[in-house]
């Protein structure tokens, strides 16, 4: 369970997290009503990794969740802390990978779990679920309409589920394939002769340029004869 405090810093374990002061009036009613958010308890005391590494992971997660257009800083911080908590556990098992890598992996896992719950019966493969699901959240206006339910698989508003499912779009209309086959054009005799000539010239660039040089030479010779 997360501990949420309205302050400009949270000290957890050996880490200090700073985030902007929050105006409580700006918190949405929806957010206020959520029982799970009334008391947030921070349990973050990573046993492995350095402070610098976890701070870096924090900063990266902050940027990452911001790229989801989540403008609610409080929600973003909640997500960061939850992700870091998971990452710390994972880092304990595999300390070779950096806290940043673990954090992003955990964010991915959380996303896939969340999307899996939303698109559970739509028969999407992993790649479609991940890509289409993210897109569905954007197209349904999710970042603005349901920022507090992002990655919260326990609380899935029905209207959000419907909007996200409806938003999975196809890139084009159904095809109705038809044949468009070129027909031979009978180019006639003149074109035949010309074709042979150009073919010959095409095969012999030296001949081609000899003809050109011949023409230029003839012109220059004529000029010489004219002015001598």
């Amino acid at each position: 369970m997360l501990l949420w405090r309205q302050s400009d810093k949270i000290i957890a374990g050996d880490l200090t997290f700073y985030f902007p002061k929050v105006d409580s009036r700006a918190i949405s009613t929806e957010f206020e009503n959520r029982a799970s958010m009334e008391a947030v308890n921070i349990q973050f005391a990573p046993e492995t990794g350095t402070e610098e590494e976890w701070n870096e992971a924090y900063a990266r997660l902050a940027d990452y969740f911001r790229s989801y257009q989540l403008h609610n800083r409080i929600r973003r911080t909640q997500l960061i802390l939850e992700t870091l908590r998971r990452a710390a556990a994972a880092h304990k098992l595999d300390a070779k990978r950096t806290p940043t890598a673990h954090s992003i992996e955990q964010a991915r896992n959380m996303l896939n779990e969340w999307l899996g719950a939303i698109y559970s019966d739509m028969n999407l493969n992993e790649s479609q679920l991940e890509a289409g699901g993210r897109l569905g959240f954007h197209l349904s206006g999710g970042p603005a309409r349901w920022p507090n339910f992002f990655l919260d698989k326990e609380n899935l508003p029905q209207d959000m589920i419907e909007a996200m499912r409806n938003a999975v779009r196809a890139s084009g209309p159904g095809m109705q394939v038809s044949k468009m086959t070129p027909r031979e054009i009978d180019l006639g005799r003149v074109s035949g002769v010309a074709e042979d000539t150009f073919d010959t010239l095409g095969r012999h660039p030296i001949l081609r340029y000899s003809i050109l040089i011949g023409i230029i030479g003839a012109v220059l010779s004529y000029l010489y004869l004219l002015f001598r």
Partner: peptide
């Protein structure tokens, strides 16, 4: 590469 939505869009298409 960076944006989760653009990345999702591209992969979907």
């Amino acid at each position: 590469c960076l944006d989760p939505y653009v990345n999702g869009l591209h992969v979907s298409l």
